[in-house]
Amino acid sequence: MIEVTNLQKIYNGVTVLNIPVLTIQEGESFGLVGNNGAGKTTFFRLILDLIEASAGEVVIDDEIVARNEDWKTKVGSFLDEGFLIDFLKPEEYFSFVGKLYGKSEGDINQFLNSIREFFNSEILDTKKLIRDFSKGNQKKIGIAAALLGDPKILILDEPFTALDPSSQIRLKRFLNEMQKTKNITMLISSHDLNHVTEVCKRIVILEKGNVVKDLQTTEDTLKELEAYFAV
């Protein structure tokens, strides 16, 4: 469970994020939408303790995240290429990450087998380094690594952009399955309103750092979102 209280981030006098209170329940799929600069990535970085909050706090399972390290075992995340170690081969990277979470080679292979479909045989056994892959394939590697440690909480920043259409569909199917079978809490930001409504049961709209809408997904949600963002 993630609890956010009075969270603020201020850069040079400009408030880029201000969330008085927000709670994300265990097993919830939480979608975050908003235009560029709305504060989505800032919010995720605050949850991951990559930036320092100007005020307030993020609490995961009753423990404050800031300057703490216990949450790292529970949270899997992929925000951008900065999460990849790009001079490794994908296999080496998965092995490295797997070992950090106490996985054996067998566990890692089993995991890689389970997402073989998502990789579409473009990732493994290519002898390429991660830095030589396309943006889309790098994204797939990052998402897979985020899942490798059996996280209770998964945080993905715009996972659908740069993926090819088939991969987008596979990823959606994959995320939906994970929710059903493993009860993972998911935080996903997206610019694609279609995708996010298909994957998330709760959708929050951020605008200039403020939560302006907090919706439970229904059949009408997509229309509501489209109406909100229409210009």
């Binding site: 991951l48 790292k72 949270v75 900065g82 999460f83 170690i85």
Partner: peptide, 14 residues
């Protein structure tokens, strides 16, 4: 530096 965020969010204590 190019993968600092990654290292800081994985299960590695300081």
């Amino acid at each position: 530096s190019s993968h600092f965020d990654g290292l800081m969010t994985k299960n590695i204590s300081v």
